[in-house]
Design a protein around this nucleic acid. Structure first.
Lengths: 215, 215
DNA sequence: CACGTTATTATACAAATGTATAGTATTCCG
DNA sequence: CGGAATACTATACATTTGTATAATAACGTG
């Protein structure tokens, strides 16, 4: 009975496992407490292995940030694609998806915030932030435009861009506070609040987004 | 010529200097890099002194968080009090103040985010967050109510509360992205975007907040 | 089944960390 | 001005940190 003392994993499998472990530790202990050793232990691996896959701990944390943001916007974009009933539904689904499970998660917000806190002084963090933010903004702008034209509202590039900025702010802010679960209100109210506010921002008739099937 | 090698400061002066130094280091290096020694050096003080004023490094960081949040909401509330032309102006000033200098600051957002990242696992952080968030929400609600009644809009407690949540999200989100200065748009556009979006959220007539003197 | 490749572990190390303690210098009060 | 109170420094210490290196075990291939 020769029990293997460890298992060799393929390049990608182990890399992802390490990134997940990094995020786990970062969510729990923050940048101050997520040490190489804790991360390795969480991944069920010896500490030395990390530097076999990454040039340094920093490089791994950067990679974990990019990995997280990819998952976040990916999930929201997915839920917009699912909605095939029309532009308003797609936008509504996209907005709602950002303030509902699984995106509404204290773990995800904690991670996001921890990384955002490094954007100012870390070039690499800033770059990842800029890219993922731009992606989100573009996505939003593309969803907004058809809805505006559908309702004969001004839909020039400048208008769409401003609206995208405002909607992005709204979504981010609600997502953050809702995820942290401070207990000051029920997070289940968030989708309705977000959609109603979005209607107002875009100057859409009431219930265009909250009850999109009536239109 | 007996040059003094150090100066004795009063309890509060030194305490505040230490808190400011803590925030400086935290903004630059995050939780991972803000060590007791760096903080002490920034404050022009020996490392040991920190534990004369605080029970532990953790306690000092917690205190720095509370200190920061007090300053943030304090500044915004101040700018609302300044506006004496009426409810709409007060609300408009409050909203705009949050997406303008000096609140629109990468340093402040970095600090805010760094702390938010710890709210999930640190009880003390969570408590400070909850308190400062509630304060902000209450402030907003009190500003919203008179504006709604002034325009004969529904202004029940539930409505005001929902609107406050939405506005808070909007403000937070714009504040964060605007402060980080990713270069995707000019932050000078933020006050107008925020006020226009706020009008929509509250279903106010156009220009009620963006040009409040016409009303 | 051997064998070479390499994914993985184990150990080592200097630097940095938070904290404890003892000593020193400043300030205030009589 | 002298001397007590204490704000402050200096040093020491055990841990933990990221990283480097050498040894080892797993796996694919012949």
């Amino acid at each position: 009975m020769t029990q293997r003392s460890y298992q060799r994993l393929g390049e990608d499998a182990r890399r992802n496992a390490l990134l997940e472990a990094t995020l786990d530790c970062l969510a729990e202990d923050g940048m101050g407490g997520a040490s190489v050793r804790k991360i390795a232990e969480r991944a069920g691996v010896s500490a030395g292995l990390i530097r076999y896959y990454f040039l340094s701990k920093d490089e791994m944390v950067h990679a974990a940030y990019a990995y997280l943001m990819g998952n976040l916007t990916g999930a929201a974009a997915e839920s917009a694609r699912m909605a095939s009933e029309g532009p308003a539904q797609a936008l509504a689904h996209f907005i709602a998806a950002n303030v509902k499970h699984p995106n509404l998660s204290s773990r995800k917000v904690s991670l996001w915030a921890t990384f955002i806190g490094r954007v100012r002084s870390g070039q690499r963090y800033a770059q990842i932030h800029r890219e993922s933010y731009r992606e989100f903004l573009d996505l939003l702008e593309a969803l907004i435009h058809p809805v505006l034209t559908q309702h004969n509202l001004p839909a020039g590039p400048a208008t769409c861009h401003s609206h995208a900025i405002a909607l992005n702010g709204l979504i981010d802010g609600l997502w953050i506070e809702g995820s942290l679960g401070h207990g000051l209100y029920d997070p289940a109210r968030l989708p309705r609040i977000a959609l109603s506010a979005a209607e107002g921002i875009l100057r859409l008739p009431n219930d265009t987004l909250t009850h999109p099937f009536a239109h």
